[in-house]
Design a protein around this nucleic acid. Structure first.
Lengths: 122, 122, 122, 122
DNA sequence: GTGGTCTAGACCACC
DNA sequence: GTGGTCTAGACCACA
């Protein structure tokens, strides 16, 4: 029953994030058939409706498309995937830099802190 | 009525963020006396209850303390401020790197993208 | 596998539309013998059941009839075809005007917009 | 219990259409506060979830925005409204002309039929 | 079997 | 009171 959902973000958004990352990182290659909504929901330990909602969001972003009655598939259009990846990254960077600047950090300090964090991890 | 609050985050936590940034960045130096809850709320265009809640949060973090009758003040303890600043920064960095790695970005690419974003802003 | 079906409408009714247009526009003249369900289905890249259902619909509208053993034919009765064409057209016009009026467009504006769209196409 | 929903389109889409028309035609002027989800749902005779879904769709199109806890409002940005109106109209026209052409109608005939329909209504 | 829709009803945070 | 989320479970059309 414990599937690691944070409480500060709706479950369906977290599902969107996970799936999008899987697509964008190549874990789910273009054209891959996704499991049925019911199965995905069961795997994630959520209600089918919740999973459905997440998938529809991905569909709006064209990362996924539906083939009536035969299932859902990851888009074959790699440019959409690449665009999505770049977009997410850009947004991450933008908000990260904004937050750091508001804290009064300058360019050099930010690089230094990134460096330190990297080393800690290794 | 337009005071620039996003709708995906509670107003009170947006207030917390703003105030914390003001303290941590030095805009509100140590020892500064804050205006009354009522005034702060009016300035921000929010309900006093909401501002009250934000201030309580800052008190829990010891960035602000209440002096019985004379009002609320920014802490004089600069180490608390510095610690808070570093803590927030560290969390930002950690989650930023985590997100980028999930997208499949490596160290070098991240630096490069940061660089590009910087240049765009200028 | 890519045969240009939209996903917001059942495949069988898209097949009905196509066939009806072919009949009504004269691409399939009165009396034409249709290929077998199996062949038509293969051409369209759909399941024979799906094609079968589409053909039944056309039979209900009497645009198509089945001759025992020799196969399916486009009706020879041109008045049926003409009536069907006029009926569909009338319904298109009715719903189009209704939609435009609900959007607050008046007669003159509608003609103007139709004109513009025409010109764009050329 | 009879609230006039067609069966060939999801209820929530029909709700979207109605609301969008009300906004775009000026029946719900910019800045208008909408009734609560619950009330709107009750008025329409649908489940609150269904109405919620419709409203979220409008929000994605920026025709409506949400003010945390105080309710939903029609956008004040009239250019968004005008753009939406023009977009819907353009789409109506495009699909109408496409349908008529597939039926084998030419420009002049279409105008004539529009004319006839107009006169019938009067 | 698939996805899609809808209802009923609960619970939450926020103000 | 407001909007937002989630669950449970039903029903449907389609292939």
């Amino acid at each position: 029953m414990e599937h690691g959902f944070r409480s500060d973000l709706p479950i369906y958004s977290q599902l969107v994030q996970r799936l999008r990352q899987d697509i964008v990182s190549g874990a789910l290659p273009p054209g891959t058939r996704l499991n049925s909504v019911r199965d995905l929901a069961a795997d994630a330990g959520v209600n089918p409706n919740t999973m459905q909602r997440a998938l529809q969001e991905l569909e709006r972003d064209e990362l996924v498309y539906t083939q009536r009655t035969s299932g859902r598939f990851v888009t074959e259009d790699v440019t959409i995937i690449a665009r999505s990846r770049a977009l997410i990254a850009k947004e991450e960077i933008r908000s990260f830099l904004a937050a750091m600047h508001l804290l009064g950090y300058q360019r050099q300090e930010i690089y230094q802190l990134l460096q330190e964090e990297k080393e800690e991890q290794e």
